[in-house]
Design a protein around this nucleic acid. Structure first.
Length: 268
DNA sequence: ATGGTCGCGAGGCGA
């Protein structure tokens, strides 16, 4: 079974690319982030045409997560329990469309779009850290209930866990940018402590291996990217992973997302 | 590649 995660940066703008990618990647499950639409604008027929069931969670033109599967799509969950909410400009806090789960081919798939901290001092940063901590506590609990559980926490984590995961750590440190700060890295490492493993890195060692390249500043042709999209697998699932890759080709050309798909091969 | 982003949605925000 092949499972993949991809921040598509608008599903409607990327519909042709997504369809072509599904065709040639031959993946069984695709966790999508940043659909950037509500259900009423979701391209359902694209997935039907390709033989995939799909579940979507989108509340506005921002965020939005989905899971497409051709190996079953059961027990769909939108948001995780007590998922921290964010209120903009004093408005009522809302649980944003950043997490959806489904059981596909015996694996509990979570498509995650971790909040962007925006800046180290911004109120989005404590939101991001709390969001991750709450999810981690659940993830830890799932393993306590069933140590052999098949769980994939996959998506755009908006964290570069090691210095090799950005094109120039000094640029980020000196500029005071997010994604590389101590608290963010600690929040990510807490998932590893809880028993989850980045199953892609061993098959795609760095440095210089990335999943995201900013549209500006010619970052892609200059090979200036970031590794921020991850598949974190429970021990039971990690033991079955036989390969992984980052489809850097998909970042090329006109009309590409700023993220590349990340693919994991799971042995049956 | 001597340049300099996208997408949404209709102005400016978010990434």
């Amino acid at each position: 079974m092949k499972i993949a995660t991809w921040n598509v940066n608008s599903l409607r703008a990327r519909a042709d690319r997504v369809e072509a990618w599904l065709q040639r990647s031959d993946c069984d499950v695709l966790a999508i982030q940043e659909t950037k639409c509500k259900d009423e604008n979701f391209p359902w027929e694209l997935f039907e045409r390709m033989g995939y069931e799909v579940a979507h969670f989108g509340l506005s033109q921002w965020n939005g997560v989905a899971i497409a599967s051709r190996v079953g799509l059961d027990n769909v969950e939108r948001t995780f329990l007590d998922q921290p909410a964010f209120g903009k400009g004093g408005k009522d806090p809302v649980q944003e469309a950043r997490a959806i789960a489904a059981t596909c081919g015996g694996v509990r798939i979570w498509s995650l779009y971790v909040p962007n901290g925006r800046s180290l001092e911004d109120e989005h940063m404590p939101y991001k850290l709390q969001w991750l901590d709450t999810l981690k506590n659940h993830a830890q609990g799932w393993l306590a209930e069933d140590p052999s559980a098949q769980i994939a926490l996959m998506g755009d984590w908006n964290i570069a866990p090691t210095d090799d995961d950005v094109w120039d750590i000094d640029f980020f440190r000196d500029g005071g940018y997010t994604h590389v700060s101590g608290p963010e890295r600690a929040a990510f490492e807490a998932f590893e402590t809880a028993g989850y493993t980045d199953v892609v890195r061993p098959f795609t060692p760095g440095p210089g291996v990335y999943t995201y390249w900013d549209y500006t500043q010619l970052r892609f042709p200059k090979k200036e990217g970031m590794r921020i999209d991850f598949v974190m697998a429970s021990p039971g699932l990690a033991a079955r992973v036989s390969g992984a890759s980052i489809d850097r080709e998909e970042r090329k050309g006109k009309g590409a997302s700023d993220h590349a798909p990340v693919i994991v091969d799971v042995a049956s």
